[in-house]
């Protein structure tokens, strides 16, 4: 997993490390509805990546969330350059 994403999940959202499995769902990792908004805000502020709440909600697993953020970051960087 992207180190910055891992840091946000563990240090900012305070999700328990032992529940953070790449093949586990966001719900299993401890996400609730507010955590999805918090993650969206933090991705924008910290990484400059715009990912909507609904996009995050559609990620079925932490691995898909990680890929989604990578893809959005690549797309948005390409658009800016």
């Amino acid at each position: 997993m992207n180190g910055e994403l891992e840091s946000i999940l563990l240090n900012d959202l305070k999700l328990p490390a032992d529940r953070l499995a790449m093949d586990g769902s966001l719900h299993e990792a401890g996400f609730d509805s507010l955590a999805i908004v918090e993650l969206s805000l933090l991705l924008g502020d910290r990484l400059g990546i715009d990912v909507s709440d609904s996009d995050i909600r559609e990620a079925a697993t932490i691995e898909q969330l990680d890929r989604l953020i990578q893809r959005k970051g690549d797309e948005q960087r390409a658009r800016r350059s």
Partner: peptide, 10 residues
């Protein structure tokens, strides 16, 4: 609308 309120409040 809790999620949107959260975003705007912050």
């Amino acid at each position: 609308q809790g999620a949107e309120v959260f975003r705007h409040a912050v």
